[in-house]
């Protein structure tokens, strides 16, 4: 069934869904902002970010603000496209019942 195919396994977790949602509506988000919004631990959040980065749905920008490292996450065009497909698929699945 075509509908199920569009359900993207890469987004099949609350944290990943959250990361993508935040990055969809913001130019970028910092690690600390994501952490606060998603109420996740450092390690947990980092591993989900890594997975999304590997799939090339998000890109990472590492900078130094003064001496503090500062990491920015930005959604890629591919990420936007895939996430939109994912939302569409979810909505269709809900409407079907």
């Amino acid at each position: 069934m075509g509908l199920i195919n569009n359900i993207n396994k890469a987004f099949d977790h609350r944290i990943r869904l959250g990361i993508m949602s935040i990055l969809m509506v913001n130019e970028y988000a910092e690690f600390t902002t994501l952490k606060e919004l998603l109420e996740a631990t450092d390690g947990n959040l980092a591993s989900h970010l890594k997975a999304l980065e590997k799939a090339e749905y998000i890109s990472v920008q590492k900078q130094f603000v003064g001496r503090k490292p500062n990491t920015k996450y930005i959604i890629t065009d591919l990420g936007k496209l895939e996430f939109k497909k994912h939302i569409d698929a979810l909505e269709k699945l809900i409407k079907r019942t």
Partner: peptide, 22 residues
């Protein structure tokens, strides 16, 4: 499949979009 989960997902997405940008 579990429709309730999908509905939850959508709610979560909306909430995160609002919370992070407004």
């Amino acid at each position: 499949m579990k429709d309730k989960d999908y509905l939850n997902d959508i709610t979560e997405i909306k909430e995160m979009m609002n919370k992070s940008s407004r």
